[in-house]
Write a protein that binds this DNA or RNA. Structure first.
Lengths: 189, 189
DNA sequence: CGCCAATACTCAACTTGTTGAATAGTCCTA
DNA sequence: TAGGACTATTCAACAAGTTGAGTATTGGCG
């Protein structure tokens, strides 16, 4: 039940519509989880059925009505209980790594192109996350914010996302350099 | 078909048994993919049926017989074609991040304990990966190895795994510090 | 006026990954 | 000499994630 708890966490201190959640969990700012709309709407229905969240219909003019969700007390309990259950270690599982692992059997130009693309994606995401971090921090410096803000969870996980992207970027560039260097030296001599 | 290509990549330059593959893809040295034995045996059967790998029975004395697999020419083609297909961006999806995101709603001692556990796991994995890297490199220094070795893919992805663990470790320690600091200051005043 | 994007969702089919249990022989340790 | 660990694999049930299509309305652009 990964998504379930991610949704509960997102609803921790604010009411959100299904649609807003799809935006949060979309490529954009899913700094701690990712999911497509279909998954989210399904999960919202299930979580409401199970009493962990409650939704209310909001009638809108000029656009479809929507349903706003908030976390319930049983939802808070579930989240707290989840936090105490052991979590299993995380693993890398990335197509691109497989391609680099098999680089010698593949067209190296294709692999290099994909590494370059990832670098660009990572750069864009870092820029976005930097904005998010600055917005969360407001006008405080980081240390002050972390010491005094009422909630720091979102800031910490956002930082994790940034680190992840930064590291990915660095590695992609390094791997590309290595592969390029080898391709050149084979071609040249 | 993530696992399929990961298996093909692992068989790129050596023949391996299903059991050896389960060890590779187990917690141990799955520096680019992870899978449980059941998944692997299923995938091996399917890939053999599809002609991407071929297996041969090896009769053993004193232990169960085993099946050794090697990649076929169609398998190599498939791997090369896979490397040229675009790969989708990677996302973080980690229980522990959800817990940290929701830290304020959870028992902070429990979250801190899990962060500490992760730090230990990461340390162990880093030590292991360092051994693997040294073994792959042999007696050469890194730069020389990367320039001259016949295959560098496994080395590059192993490095990626190490970076990932290192970054995870650093972040876990930082997040734990932040949360501990806040817990103390709330308790103390 | 027509088209596209955005809002706000739903249904269905499918693929992947997870969990638990089982088999069966050998080797090592207590 | 019993019990566990290691080798080597299989079957089945289920949960989670992916993909593709479809609905309906509004607002803006050219």
């Amino acid at each position: 039940m990964g998504l379930r708890h991610a949704v509960l966490a997102a609803l921790l201190d604010r009411e959100l519509s299904g649609y807003q959640l799809t935006k949060l969990f979309d490529v954009g700012v899913a700094d701690f989880w990712y999911a497509v709309p279909q998954q989210l709407y399904t999960e919202l229905t299930r979580s409401e059925r199970d009493g962990l969240i409650s939704g209310r219909e909001v009638i809108q003019h000029g656009r479809p009505n929507k349903r706003m969700y908030r976390i319930t007390d049983p939802g808070l309990d579930e989240l707290a209980a989840f936090a105490e259950r052991p979590s299993k270690p995380q693993f890398l599982r990335d197509d691109l790594l497989v391609k680099v692992y098999a680089a010698e059997a593949a067209d190296s130009a294709a692999v290099l192109a994909q590494l370059a693309e990832r670098v660009e994606q990572a750069r864009a995401k870092i820029a976005l996350l930097d904005q998010v971090l600055a917005r969360i921090r407001g006008d405080q410096d980081e240390q002050r914010f972390l010491a005094t803000a009422p909630r720091v969870g979102p800031y910490l996980t956002c930082h994790r996302g940034r680190l992840f992207e930064q590291e990915h970027l660095t590695w992609c560039e390094w791997a590309a350099d290595v592969l390029r260097g080898r391709a050149d030296s084979h071609a040249g001599g």
